[in-house]
């Protein structure tokens, strides 16, 4: 078991290392940040001064070494543009992202779980077909398109909801829906298949044989069992949500982490891009590591394989 955890953790470190390497070189492919930080027509000397100030004049490998070294010290670096530590910016935006993720997650569960149950009870009939359409659209429509259509309808034509920014509950509705639809679809699919599996089980057969009403069989005996995998997925999805909200936060100008990343990319603010990506990647790697270890604790067969 100990060996398994050590091995699994070293894989995690390796993925983080590869991630840091990739993101470090990829941001540098986008161009020279100095040209965006100086006034148009600035002299070569000015640009060189900026290069020197941000350490961009050093050889790439030295820059990378410094980046990793400060990472180990818990330092994500300083933003070129804001002139403040990236970690501070990150923490600043985190509550907004968590709020959006929380609302979108609640929405996705409130829609996905009942819809999944309906579909499983009605396999092959109307609600199942409707649910299939809902998941197909939810999982295939890009969220920027959903966002733009929502803005067009509810802000431009109807004028009911604000198209951008944050501050009131009204601001949350459209971004939460645009972000939550994809997850509602995935929660619905899992609820449906998990319900179908449970409904085929022997204990549901026994519940039927006991003469329980259908509503009680579904709501009590089947639902509680079917919920376990859905909640596991939802837990992982919260982390995924915080990190994939880039597009939605950009479309609705929602001041979260995704928007911070977007700003970092447009301004070629390397430390911000690196920091946000490393934080997101780190979260996902840690969640996966914890899940893998938990599985190994629960299922002895996984332990034996290692």
């Amino acid at each position: 078991m100990k060996q398994y955890i050590i091995r699994r953790s070293s894989y995690s470190l390796l993925s983080l290392f590869l991630l840091s390497l990739t993101i470090f070189f990829f941001v540098r492919v986008t161009g020279d940040p100095a040209t965006l930080l100086v006034e148009p027509g600035a002299s070569a000397a000015d640009i060189a001064a900026i290069h020197q100030r941000f350490g961009l004049d050093k050889p790439l490998w030295t820059q990378y070494g410094l980046f990793v070294w400060s990472l180990f010290q818990g330092d994500l670096g300083q933003s070129f543009y804001y002139q403040t530590p990236v970690f501070e910016l990150y923490l600043d935006r985190l509550p907004n992202s968590l709020l959006l993720a929380f609302v979108a997650m609640s929405l996705s569960l409130l829609i996905g779980i009942p819809a999944g149950i309906m579909a499983s009870v009605q396999v092959g009939r109307f609600w199942d077909g409707f649910g299939k359409l809902f998941t197909l659209l939810g999982q295939s429509l890009p969220s920027f398109l959903v966002g733009l259509v929502l803005i067009l309808v509810f802000s431009v034509y109807l004028g009911w909801l604000p198209s951008s920014g944050a501050g009131t509950p009204l601001h949350l509705i459209m971004p939460a829906f645009a972000l939550g639809w994809y997850f509602a679809a995935s929660h619905m699919r899992l609820t449906r298949s998990s319900m179908l599996e449970v409904l085929g089980s022997e204990y549901i057969k026994l519940a039927r044989l006991k003469g329980l009403p259908q509503s009680m069989i579904i709501a009590k005996h089947a639902f509680k069992n079917a919920l376990i995998p859905v909640l596991t997925l939802a837990g992982i999805n919260v982390v995924v949500m915080v990190n994939v909200a880039v597009v939605v936060e950009t479309v609705f100008a929602w001041p979260g982490i995704g928007r911070l990343l977007y700003e970092g990319i447009t301004f070629r603010d390397f430390p911000i891009v690196q920091g946000v990506v490393i934080m997101g990647g780190g979260m996902i790697v840690i969640v996966n590591l914890v899940i893998d270890i938990l599985y190994a604790i629960i299922d002895p067969r996984i332990r034996l394989e290692s």
Binding site: S201, E202, Y203, K205, L206, A207, K220, H221, K224, N225
Partner: peptide, 8 residues
């Protein structure tokens, strides 16, 4: 083993 509901 399978005919009782594990959660009740």
């Amino acid at each position: 083993m399978a005919s009782l509901n594990p959660l009740f």
